[in-house]
Amino acid sequence: MLSIKNLHASIGGKEILKGINLEIKAGEVHAIMGPNGSGKSTLSAVLAGKEDYDVTEGEVIFNGKNLLELSPEDRAREGIFLAFQYPVEIPGVSNVNFLKTAINEIRAYKGLEPMAAKDFLARLKEKQKLVELDGKLANRSVNEGFSGGEKKRNEIFQMAMLEPKLAILDETDSGLDIDALRIVADGVNKLKSNDNATVVITHYQRLLDYIIPDVVHVLYNGKIVKTGPKELALELEEKGYDFIKAEAAV
């Protein structure tokens, strides 16, 4: 589904990603772990198409398409979803209205008619339940006045509404208490299928108790320095990132 080869990216002339290689297949859950400043958020931003970053080398192929040539909206329309680490507040834009616009622009890209109002409402209801999102929140302005946990839940709600092929969760666990974490993880698990894939980017192992990864990658200093089964996450938790740093230094 996603194939990243030798990806280099920099911001303001400073290289952050220094040759990332990653293969993700449909039905898989990948975890990318790493210490602060290793390039985790840069990787998610580059995949989503944030224009602040310059890709200097490498390629990203997503379902046969050269992802790096697509605008952010076309990436979303092709099925990439980024759950933001810090979702922005957009006063005056209602969640529901914005999701309706998003769904219909994605459908138009695929040559489909706009979604019928009653189908949209049915999906809204179903997905709200799935992520245990209060109906009042869904009708409010996007993230305006939401708590940290509500914002993250709203990200998963949007993901549920848009039904992406590849979801990238950028530190979705940061700032969440254990109850909110469970709800978010539960939502992600329910949305998992054989046709989609999930990339979980996190600093902590705890989220991976709830979203069980097939593969764990360790990102350090702009490169994936270690890849292993889910047990790798536990090892990292136990030994800390210092052992990776020590290994990388060798």
């Binding site: 914005f98 999701l99 998003a102 890209y109």
Partner: peptide
């Protein structure tokens, strides 16, 4: 905000 909305599929 523009990027956030584009990342959801809006032009």
């Amino acid at each position: 905000k523009i990027f956030y909305l584009r990342a959801r599929g809006l032009s």
